[in-house]
Design a protein around this nucleic acid. Sequence first.
DNA 1: TAAAAATACTCCATAGGTATTTTAT
DNA 2: ATAAAATACCTATGGAGTATTTTTA
Lengths: 296, 296
Amino acid sequence: MENITIKQLRYFEAVSAQGHFGRAAEICSISQPAISVQIKELEQTLGQKLFERHARHIRLTAFGSVFSERVQPILRAIDDLSDLARAANPGLVGKLRLGVIPTVGPYLLPKFVTDLTAAFPGLDVRMRETQTEKLIADLLAGELDIALVALPISEPALAEVPLFEEPFVLLRAVGDAHKPVPNGETLRKMRLLLLEEGHCFRDQALSFCGPSPNAPHESMEGSSLSTLVQMVASGLGVTLLPEMAVRLETRSADVSVARFPTPEPTRQIGLIWRKTTPMAAQFQQIAELFRTTTAV
Amino acid sequence: MENITIKQLRYFEAVSAQGHFGRAAEICSISQPAISVQIKELEQTLGQKLFERHARHIRLTAFGSVFSERVQPILRAIDDLSDLARAANPGLVGKLRLGVIPTVGPYLLPKFVTDLTAAFPGLDVRMRETQTEKLIADLLAGELDIALVALPISEPALAEVPLFEEPFVLLRAVGDAHKPVPNGETLRKMRLLLLEEGHCFRDQALSFCGPSPNAPHESMEGSSLSTLVQMVASGLGVTLLPEMAVRLETRSADVSVARFPTPEPTRQIGLIWRKTTPMAAQFQQIAELFRTTTAV
DNA sequence: TAAAAATACTCCATAGGTATTTTAT
DNA sequence: ATAAAATACCTATGGAGTATTTTTA
C-alpha cells in the first residue's frame, strides 16, 4: 500500500541475517513487535511474502532471497552516501572501523593506531580482530571500513593496497640452534606446529612446505602464535613466525630464531576496502601514513 | 543528525532536476516548505550543502553533483524492488509505461496496445510519444518501463530486442510516377523533404543518401510524416516514408509510392529497456507477443 | 521590488513501545 | 508446553500543510 522505506530494508536485512525476528529487533535496538510490523508492511507493499515463518526459526522465501540480493547493494550504496559527505571534509574525521588479522594485530596495531590518531586527531578508531574470511564478509556487509590483512585476497569487490613484504623466520627449541636451517621440503618432514584452520598464516606456512594434499606429518595446532611459541619452547616441534611477531613473542620464551636462506618465505601485508567506498582517497592517505611511519 | 530517507533522496532528485524548489514540490505533489525542510534536513545529516541558492534559480554544489550521481542509481534500484515483486506474479499486471518514437506511434500502436491489453487484461498501459533521445533519458530516469524505437541505440545500460526490419519507400508527386526510381546517390541531388532535427528517421533517410557532411541540397523540413506527405502532394519535392506509414498517410493524399530496388533502405524496429529491470522476462514476453500478433 | 526559499505554527499519520494473544512444534 | 511471531492499543515524533518572513539579484 505504502512506500518502501530504508528502515524497512534495514530491518529486512537484519531479520534475514538473523533468521529470527527477536534477535534482529535487538540488533536494530527496537522491540520485536516493531520489527514484525515493519516487515509485514514491507510484505504488503510488495504483495509478496519475504519469510516463511516456522515455530523456532524463519527462512527467506524464494522471492525473499532474490529480494535480499537486490537490497544489500542498495543499503551499501546508501551507507556510502554518508561517507561521501565525510570524504568531502578536509582531513579524515569520524568513526573508522578497522579490521585486522590475528597474526598482525598484536604486533603492528599499537603503533599503527597511535600514528593514525596522531595524524588525524578527529578520528575515532574502532578495532575488530578476526580471521580474513570474516573480515572480508564484514567489509562487504558494510560493518567494517578497512582491514589490514595478508594479500592477495582476490575478492572482486575489494581494493587491495600492498604495504610491505614480511619474511617468516624459523622457531626451534634452543637445543636445535646449531642445526642447519631446513628448506621447505625438509621442514615438511619435521614436526611443524601450525595455527588452527582458518588462519591465513597457517596456509602461508603450509604453502612454503610445498604442495601437499594434507597437513604435514604429525602436525600439531595452536590457536595463537603465543601458544605455538610456548609449544616450541617445550620441545614439541618447530614453527614459523612472521618477523614482526619475533620481538614480542620470544621475549620471555626460551627458543631459537633463524632466518631462512633466500628465497625466504614471506607474506605481503596490505590494506583492503570496498572499491565503491567514497572514502577511497582517505584510505589511500592511511596507507601512505602507514608506509612512512609504521613500516617495519 | 538523523538518518537519510528515501523520501529525502526523491525530493533531492526532483529539486536537482528542476533547479527550483517550488516546481520540484509540485512534481512531488507536496508544498514548497515541505520540500525545503526535507532538503535542509538532508543537508544537515550530510553536513554538506547540496544546493547553491540564488535569487531566481538554484544550482547543485560540487558536492551536490557528486552526491546526485550516487543517488540516481540508488533510486532506480529501489524502483526496481517494486518491479521485482510484480515480476514474481504470474502473467503481467499493473502499470506499464510505454514509449514510442513519432514515426512508429500512429501506425503500430493501435494494434500493439490492443493486442497487449487483450493478452494481459491486468495491464494498465500508459503511452508517451517522443523522440529517441528523450525516450532513452526517460528510461534511464525510471520514468518509462519500455520503449519502441529504431535500433541500434547503443546505450550500455539498455537492452535492445529487435522485432522486425522495415523498408522505406519513395514518395513522389503523381506526375513523377513514370520516372525511374532513384538510388541513394541520385536522391541526394533531388529536393528531399525531411523531418526536422532530432527525429531518428531523418538521420536514417539521410544515411541512405550516402555520406554527406551537410544536409542535402535545398532540403525542406516538416515536423511530422503527415506534413511531409502533404508537401510531396503539393509538388514541393520527394520524401522517404517507412512502409508502415504508407497506408495511413497516403489514403487521402495524391502521391505516388515506389519501392526501392535492393538494397532497399530499411530501419530495424525493436524494444528497449533498462538492463537491470527485474521485469526483463515480462518484457521479453511482450516482444514475443509483438512478433506473433502485430508483425507487419 | 519581486520571486523564491526559509521559518513558524499546527495537525495528524505513523513508528515504536508495552501488554497480550495466537501459532506451530 | 513453550518459544516465537502477531495483534491490540497507546504515545510521541516528525512530516506536511498554511501563513508569513527573510533573502538576493
